[in-house]
Amino acid sequence: MRGGRHVAAVTDATFDLAAGECLALVGESGCGKSVLASALLGLLPANAETSGAALLDGGPDLLTAGERTLARTVRGRRIGLVPQSPAAHLTPVRTVRAQVEETLRELTGVRGPAVRPAVQAAAGRAAFPDDHLDRYPHELSGGLAQRAATALALIGDAPLLLADEPTTGLDRELVERTVDELRRHTDGGRALLIITHDLAAAERIADRVAVMYAGRIVELTGADRFFGRPGPRHPYARGLLEALPEREFAPIPGMPPELGDLPQGCAFAARCPRADAQCGLQPPFERGVACHHASSDDIRRAEEHADA
Rank of each mutant, 00 (worst) to 15 (best):
A191G: 10
A191H: 00
A191R: 00
A191S: 04
L192T: 03
L192Y: 01
L192E: 02
L193T: 00
L193K: 00
L193E: 00
L193M: 07
I194H: 05
I194R: 07
I195F: 06
I195L: 13
I195Q: 03
T196C: 08
T196N: 06
H197P: 14
H197Y: 13
H197N: 14
D198R: 05
L199P: 11
L199C: 05
A200G: 15
A200C: 07
A200S: 14
A201N: 05
A201Q: 07
A201F: 15
A202L: 05
A202W: 08
A202M: 05
A202Q: 02
E203D: 10
E203R: 09
R204M: 12
R204G: 13
I205A: 05
I205D: 01
I205S: 03
A206F: 04
D207S: 13
R208Y: 06
R208N: 15
R208G: 06
R208E: 10
V209K: 06
A210R: 04
A210P: 12
V211S: 02
V211C: 04
V211W: 01
V211F: 02
M212S: 04
M212V: 11
M212R: 13
M212C: 11
Y213V: 03
A214M: 12
A214E: 10
A214I: 12
A214K: 02
G215C: 10
G215L: 13
G215W: 06
G215E: 01
R216Y: 14
R216G: 14
R216S: 15
R216W: 08
R216F: 08
R216K: 07
R216M: 05
I217K: 01
V218A: 00
V218R: 02
E219V: 09
E219S: 06
L220E: 01
L220Q: 01
L220H: 04
L220Y: 07
T221I: 07
T221E: 04
T221W: 01
G222A: 09
G222K: 05
G222Y: 04
G222R: 05
A223N: 00
A223F: 02
A223R: 00
D224I: 11
R225T: 13
F226H: 03
F226K: 04
F226N: 01
F227Y: 04
F227L: 06
F227M: 04
G228A: 11
R229I: 11
R229V: 06
P230Q: 15
P230L: 13
P230V: 12
G231V: 07
G231P: 02
G231T: 14
P232F: 04
P232N: 05
